[in-house]
Design a protein around this nucleic acid. Structure first.
Lengths: 346, 346
DNA sequence: AGGAATTCTCAAAACGCTTTGTATATTGCC
DNA sequence: GGCAATATACAAAGCGTTTTGAGAATTCCT
């Protein structure tokens, strides 16, 4: 009851191992009739190639990709992961997962471990503060296909799959303006990657385009290393914003988590959302829909992003040097938290 | 700049490959001095064993476990996964992940793929309707260490890590009784595994122990195949409960997701939680704390469960035939949704 | 000192596959 | 029919390890 190997098929058919191998990998130099016989026998004997042997021979693991994300139990990232896995499974790829916990050193360790293992490709959502030349560059130099997700490095020019952070932020803030909010604050991320910087830029240009003055004291930046810190930080930054001489009447937060902190602050201090304070978040996290009031937010389709990331990996694997890049346009989901009743409106 | 292999060390030291191998794997039959020299040289030359070769030779992948969970972007399961990965990384294990999407056939495919790959162990959170003898038994027969998580099979007697579902449900319902609710309903799961059945049993025995009559029309069962269906189902079942001649004044739901559906129904129909309807969920999902009113729920510590699952795997790997089992006691987290104001109390 | 027991080391085989270079069979052409 | 050209098949080497059976060196005993 041992697993059948090439040798077994070869003996059963009275041909050589080489021939069987050629047939199964449809190489040239083989008679069509022989090939058909081999294929039949292989099926009959329920032959399954030994991945390990192939890997050793070719000196790289076949059909295994590595996915590294900052936090595994975070709705957005786990949804991206889901998107990758669905595709991967359909293509008979195995998915090894690593969690960097927003720690660049750990991210590096994981990536190295993956490389040592001889993985076929890397799909990486870089952590905050991820060191490009330390962590990713060595992999690129080894010509392993890489797809960067969600967050971008400064002068990285390879494959990526992102959210259109700036325009997403722009429409969020424009929406607040259109709803009649006058003093719109922003709680953003200190992080200099696309996520933090671009969303802040979107906020700024929406204000500018609509002739609103930009008040630096309405901008608070937080460090988003951890999910729960996001909430905590949101709470504290909101407190700080409310201590302005003229407090803001709306806030656009860099993530839904930060908005959660804002909600808590508002509840604790009797501030009514949306009438006294409009709120728009970013991500359309699972929570947002069920909050009360429900949270307006910018959608980020993690699953589609994961799907495409895998597709790009496959394409990068088969084309040579071609680069695949995509920024997902993101839509605003308007819910209650930004629906100022017209009675108090401008 | 090639990767150093045993042969390189052997040549550098003028000994045989065998000797180097023995030294590195601290086997017997080797001179202590030779061994030390080998170890030093190995470090100096930055030797890293080639996992592929080892795997091929030993005919099984070394240091790779497979984790299969029903849904990847589900807070509880992804938290379990996180717990596993933290431990796994600390022990230099790679983690391959699969998502069964609550489909037994797909679960089987994934497990088979993992087995073909020659994985060192399986950590499985079975999907609803998972077929034990089809999916898991073949693996157990091959003497691969297995740890079952979260949900139990009927006559499975191997390693597992679970939540104490029955007692968790019991304290949830007892709490509702103590808060003065009189007609406590249950929205449970049709699923016959521990999760569905045990939570319902806990509900029943809490009622019995407190001399309350059990009204079958207060028990609704739903099919939990999908996260979002949970919410949808909660909504519909709540509607059905409210159409009783004497509607319930409290409900214990099998998961927080179902409670979310109850919340939506209550909001749509002007039912005040907790005064007109007490609600307790199960899982302490991330959402629950931020709902309004915040949701009382039974805590399930996914991360601890993941940690222990990995520990059990390691122990199972090294002991022989020993069985490790644990049911996590779960605590009730009391929040607003069950805090009936005493004015209306009994 | 001689032989047995013990310690240390090694060459070679094996894991299952791909690939290269070579040999054999088949075909086409004059 | 004979020779080149082409199509097909094969044996053997190699990927980096572990493991086995045996040989060489050392130690121990009387």
């Amino acid at each position: 009851m041992k697993r059948t190997k090439l040798k077994d098929i070869a003996e059963a058919l009275g041909v050589s191992i080489t021939t069987v191998s050629r047939a199964l990998n449809n190489k040239s130099d083989i008679n069509q009739r022989t090939k058909r016989k081999v294929l039949e026998m292989a099926k009959e004997m329920d032959y399954k190639p030994n991945n390990l042997a192939i890997s050793l021979r070719k000196n790289k693991v076949s059909n295994v990709i590595g996915v590294v994300i900052p936090v595994v139990n975070h709705y957005f990232f786990s949804t991206v992961l889901k998107g990758i896995m669905t595709k991967a499974h359909a293509h008979n790829y195995l998915v090894i997962v690593g969690e960097s916990v927003h720690n660049s050193k750990k991210e590096k360790e994981i990536l190295e471990e993956f490389m040592d293992y001889g993985i076929s490709g890397i799909l990486l959502a870089p952590c905050l503060g991820s060191d490009f030349s330390e962590n990713l560059l060595p992999i690129i130099h080894r010509r392993i296909p890489v797809v960067v997700m969600d967050r971008l490095y400064d002068n990285y020019n390879g494959n990526y799959v992102l959210t259109e952070d700036k325009s997403g932020a722009y429409i969020a803030v424009r929406h607040l303006i259109e709803m009649g909010y006058q003093r719109i604050a922003h709680i953003g991320s200190t992080d200099s990657s696309s996520v933090g910087l671009e969303r802040k830029n979107g906020y700024l240009s929406a204000l500018r385009d609509h002739g609103m003055t930009i008040d630096e004291s309405y901008i608070e930046l937080v460090d988003l290393m951890d999910i729960n810190e996001g909430i905590q930080n949101g709470y504290e930054r909101m407190a700080s914003l409310m201590s302005c001489k003229v407090p803001p009447d709306a806030v656009f937060t860099v993530t839904d988590d930060v908005a959660l902190g804002v909600y808590q602050y508002a509840r604790d201090h009797g501030i009514k959302i949306p009438d006294e304070l409009g709120v728009v978040g970013f991500s359309n996290s699972k929570v947002s829909k069920y909050l009360s009031p429900s949270l307006s937010t910018v959608e980020q389709n993690g699953e589609a992003m994961g799907n495409l990331a895998f597709d790009y990996f496959m394409q990068a694997l088969h084309t040579n040097g071609m680069v695949y890049q995509k920024k997902f346009q993101s839509d605003l989901i308007v819910r209650q938290s930004s629906m100022k009743s017209t009675i108090n409106g401008n």
